[in-house]
Amino acid sequence: MLFKNLIEYMGLEPGRLHFSWISSAESTKFVEVVNEVTSAIKALGPRKSMVKTPLTDIKDKATEHVDIH
């Protein structure tokens, strides 16, 4: 609860982080929740925030830097 609140406070859209309780006998609930989670996240679209720059991009930048010298 605290975690979800804080991460949303820092700008993650509500609906990207889901929690649930499903017993091992509740396969129907499992399918329901998967559907729900997927559609919620599909609706939000690709995530842009809080993604680390891929290493390859950083490498490109680093080589640029070396070229200057």
Partner: peptide, 8 residues
């Protein structure tokens, strides 16, 4: 880069 997280 995950678009969403589901914890169950």
């Amino acid at each position: 880069g995950a678009d969403g997280i589901w914890m169950s």
